[in-house]
Design a protein around this nucleic acid. Sequence first.
DNA 1: GCTGCGATTGACT
DNA 2: GTCAATCGCAGCT
Length: 201
Amino acid sequence: MMRPRPDLTAHAREIAPLLLGSLLTSRVGGVPVTVRITEVEAYGGVGEDPGSHAFRRETPRNATMFGPPGRAYVYFTYGIHWCLNVVTGPTGSAGAVLLRAGEVVAGVDVARERRISARSDRDLARGPARLTSALGVTGERDGLDLFAARSVLRLMLTEPASDANIGVSARTGVGGAGAGTPWRFFLLGEPSVSLYRRASR
DNA sequence: GCTGCGATTGACT
DNA sequence: GTCAATCGCAGCT
């Protein structure tokens, strides 16, 4: 079955809500694990969004954000965790959508093995670093094309959720000048949506 | 070269 | 609710 490559050239804040409900499948390790995305955050480009890694300029770390849309931008944080973004906007605009949480809909057994500390299945991918952990995604996958036929990480867009089912809030964990932007989107009533935490520090 | 801190999580009170 | 873990990056000297 042919699946067209979606147009992700709009601004990250336009793309972000469209990714809600989409299916992300990882074949890392051989056994597929699929997560249905329930929470995302948009990040802007150079000089636009103080909360974005791309705010200052292109660096070796954020280089993938400056590449073409549809790729995976994976970064390491807090000395332990990996987080996964979908690059959006025209090439060079450096927009991205952080995948913050999802519901594991296939490969639950494998996800449980990777997330031994999870108290329940809804915690398997509830949180950006938990999501990458459940999928077995690390920095090795940075720059991967999420829509290439043979990618070990593939994103499949579904019918967009209706506005009535989408919640909006300020971004989690983003302080300072970028704190006010309502660029966090989530599916209402989903238990896998991470608890909102106010930006601190 | 040195320092501060982060798009977080999990353990603990 | 609070807090430590842990290390690469970015910014500055």
